[in-house]
Amino acid sequence: MTAYILRRMLYAIPILIGVNLITFALFFVVNSPDDMARMHLGEKRVTEEAILGWKREHGYDRPLLYNEEARGLASLTDTIFFEKSVKLFAFQFGPSDDGRDIGYDISQRMWPSLAIAIPVLLVGLAFNISYALFIVFFRATYVDIGSVVLLVAMMSISGLFYIIGGQFILSKLFHLAPISGYDQGLNAWKFLTLPVIVGVIGGIGSGTRWYRTLFLEEIAKDYVRTARAKGLSERLVLFRHVLGNALIPILTGVVVVLPLLFMGSLITESFFGIPGLGSYTIDAISNQDFAIVRSMVFLGAVLYILGLILTDISYTLVDPRVRLQ
């Protein structure tokens, strides 16, 4: 087990190097720091000095890969590649383009993100599984057909409309929750209710439909017939046998996204004005803050790989057939 996890970690290294090279290529090779500076300074006619100044201010005034002027090891370390890309491996994100410490911002902003993402995940999971079981219990009846149509319709609505609709109905018409904003500590709950509700509703369509498919797949299997031949009631068959088996793909599907919950939801957070990592990323994108985007790309990749490893581990925990080697 330990050896397996260790090996998976080793596998992660070349992938992270790959991610790093891709981002480096995207951010520094396709467009030079000069271009970035010109973009930031805005006007068409920017003086060379202004560009140089901007670059110096943000640490882009080094050579890309190899510093001929520096000596020894510094000729490799005193470069943009080392400063801006390699240091990401040590989670040293450096300052953002407007001078704030990215690492500090991330550590502050991930909590509001989690405060939304975790309830959405848990409530959504509970609701979707229950609803899917309900549908499957009444399979091949009008309950089933009607529900499937409803789910497909819900899937066909853009997430933006759920947010806009939720804000409009719950906040504007009925004044049940504040439209947007955030508060520290426990007072945050009233700001969180609406985004959580919206998040859950937005996920019902695809979530419940997927679980329904999983349940139906399991219900067609031979062991379900055996269970029925034992004289088990339909309720026991569903809850004990079908749910038990279907939970394996459900749980591992959840585990893979667990680490990514830290990244927050881009759209929800920015609509509701929640100071999480999602809105952080959005703001960075609209402010064209490359340093933050770069850091988030790397962080996202790390979390994704972590999710993959956790998935494999969770398989061994929930599925007796799987033993890691």
């Binding site: 004289g231 009631s233 046998h241 599925d319």
Partner: peptide
């Protein structure tokens, strides 16, 4: 249901798939 598995029981062709793998 009380008859099934009680007075009247059945075994199937594929023992590989006829048992629940997670119990």
């Amino acid at each position: 249901r009380r008859v099934r598995g009680g007075r009247l029981a059945m075994i199937f062709q594929e023992p590989q798939t006829s048992l629940n793998p997670v119990l």
